[in-house]
């Protein structure tokens, strides 16, 4: 159990570092939502433990790292947690490509919610580049899934 917590914590820490890493401005527009991807994985893997509440807490941390409005990403990740938990039976049965497409739609929903609220706070112009990280997230998903699954297994064997 402790081992598992360690794997979860490490994966989240790495995902936070990946969203913090300075990139050239044009690249940072396309940066996938690493934290959301990792969070979706754990929602599928441990649906009885990782859900909206965990998402909300992780989201608050995202808000602080991004210096965005407190509660913005928390709301987004709580939604992601709720939806993923709700459909986790189906999502786990899906073949990998279908799963990736589902993840794409979850990421899209997350971006839509966050972008919509950002529009209230300040005039923000969201063009098509705003949605591309979801697409990149979909491409990354199968690989991320394999990496995290193997990391979890390697730990449990020991």
């Amino acid at each position: 159990m402790n081992q598992r917590v360690l794997v979860i914590a490490t994966s989240f820490i790495i995902s936070f570092l990946l969203i913090l890493l300075p990139l050239p401005e044009w690249m940072s527009m396309y940066r996938p939502d690493w934290v959301v991807l990792v969070f979706i994985y754990w929602c599928l893997e441990l649906p009885e433990r990782v859900g909206p509440v965990a998402g909300w807490i992780v989201g608050l941390l995202v808000d602080v790292t991004q210096t965005s409005l407190l509660g913005l990403n928390a709301l987004g990740l709580a939604l992601v947690g709720y939806i993923t938990n709700r459909f986790h039976h189906r999502l786990r049965m899906f073949p990998w490509w279908q799963q990736a497409v589902s993840v794409f739609f979850i990421l899209l929903l997350y971006r839509a919610l966050v972008g919509w609220i950002k529009g209230f706070i300040a005039p923000t112009y969201l063009d098509y580049t705003y949605w591309t990280p979801s697409l990149i997230g979909m491409i990354i998903w199968p690989w991320l899934f394999i990496v995290l699954r193997d990391a979890g297994r390697a730990r449990r064997v020991r």
């Binding site: 649906p47 009885e48 859900g51 909206p52 509440v53 909300w56 409005l69 407190l70 509660g71 913005l72 928390a74 709301l75 709580a78 939604l79 709720y82 938990n85 709700r86 986790h88 039976h89 609220i117």
Partner: peptide, 25 residues
Amino acid sequence: MARETSSTDLLRFALLVCLSVALMI
């Protein structure tokens, strides 16, 4: 299992939504 707890799940989620909105305001 998911079916039994879905209403409490929804309730919990609704609470989180309210909490987030309050925090944002």
